[in-house]
Design a binder for these strands. Structure first.
Lengths: 215, 215
DNA sequence: CGTTTACTAGACACTCTGTCTCTAGCACTA
DNA sequence: TAGTGCTAGAGACAGAGTGTCTAGTAAACG
């Protein structure tokens, strides 16, 4: 956890416990430690049970220092949530772009997202999305996720590999939420089943039965 | 708001502001006022912004009294959420049972639920489901909702009006979440579109093929 | 080598939380 | 109609959390 521990004098230990070569790097690390601590605490004690003191303690810094990074618990939780979403987004983007056809990319997106939701559900991850007042930041992340799906649907529609009788935005929203169902399911198999159902709804090209055999 | 206002003596006003004929009735009213106040506050200030003091103040009672009804903010929010869910459940049950065929009942269920989610989304209703630690109570409500959908699916499957190649539980979960997408959509028309998509996935009778293109 | 940055501990003035005590009025019984 | 128990209610208090500030130290930066 901590790289170097310099001395404890009477008044304050002035180089923090965890310290990397550069200031910037160090700040990144501390920030990460804070977000991680907050996430864990939210998981253990519920969103309302997270306090600045606890976060500071778990992150290995003083409360005063914590206020130099974030102005309150709310902000920390939102940042923490955003971080996780970003991680997932990266995975998803990769899954999508590594596919052959647009349709295949979209299907992979669905599979991966269902998987993510399944794990999130199992882990009982704190539902930080309910920080109603975090509004903005969260909204942006949500939109980013939606954007990803919408673009994937659009591409697949353009390629004639997905039904075009439904607006891409609507179809994307539909799929996204359907896949989210994987979060409240008991087994990985069921999660996969949901993903399959969602994929089924993409229909075949433009009415004709199958543009193909990608099995 | 208050029905009768009796006198303010030196020590405490011992008959509360709002008072109905019987104690029982009174307690019901106070409880409702508390839940309502908490809901409103959660809406305005976010889940973490709700305090016992504020709830008491908005409900027109003292903080100490509030503790005689609920042991903490968490509990109030959970109860409040449960109340809302129960309301919706009642509506949904009615919608379901007033239909002719099982399939029709299921479809109505989907339509109504999408509608509910749409309104909830528009109103920016507090996402109390994230009270991670509220666990039990909320879980039970969720299950009740799921139960409703599962039973509806089962009935429709038994009548041969809905595809039977997917386990009822899974199909119900799928539909439920898909309909929930209506919560993050902009217009009522889109919400209806989502419902339609969800219904489409029910397939035809003993559906072995996909939702679309069943000519 | 001087300046900037990062941090700590302690303190203060709040607010929120649980809990406890005491009062006054409803709701039964006689 | 009077007496008595039950309990809703207010106020007070100690303990915890919050947000801010100051004084002080030491490493990193340029």
């Amino acid at each position: 956890m901590h790289d170097v521990l310099r001395h404890d004098k009477a008044y304050g230990r002035c180089v923090p416990k965890l310290w990397k070569d550069t200031v910037e790097e160090h700040r990144r690390d501390v920030r990460a430690a804070i977000l991680d601590a907050a996430w864990r605490l939210a998981h253990e004690r519920g969103i309302r049970g997270v306090t600045m003191g606890l976060v500071a303690q778990h992150a290995g810094i003083s409360r005063a220092t914590l206020y130099k990074y974030f102005s309150g618990v709310e902000e920390i939780l939102v940042a923490s949530h955003a971080e996780h979403v970003q991680e997932h987004l990266a995975t998803l983007r990769e899954a999508h772009s590594s596919a052959g056809t647009p349709r295949e990319g979209l299907e992979r997106l669905i599979d991966h997202y269902a998987e993510i939701c399944f794990h999130r559900g199992r882990a009982g991850a704190p539902d930080t999305s309910a920080l109603v007042h975090a509004g903005e930041q969260h909204q942006r992340n949500t939109t980013e996720l939606e954007r990803l799906f919408i673009d994937a649907v659009l591409a697949a529609q353009a390629a004639g590999e997905v039904r075009a009788d439904i607006a891409a935005k609507l179809l994307a929203t539909y799929i996204l939420h359907a896949a989210e169902g994987a979060g409240s399911v008991g087994s990985r198999g069921e999660a996969a089943g949901l993903a399959t159902l969602a994929k089924e709804c993409l229909g075949s090209a433009s009415g004709s039965t199958g543009p193909t055999t990608r099995h």
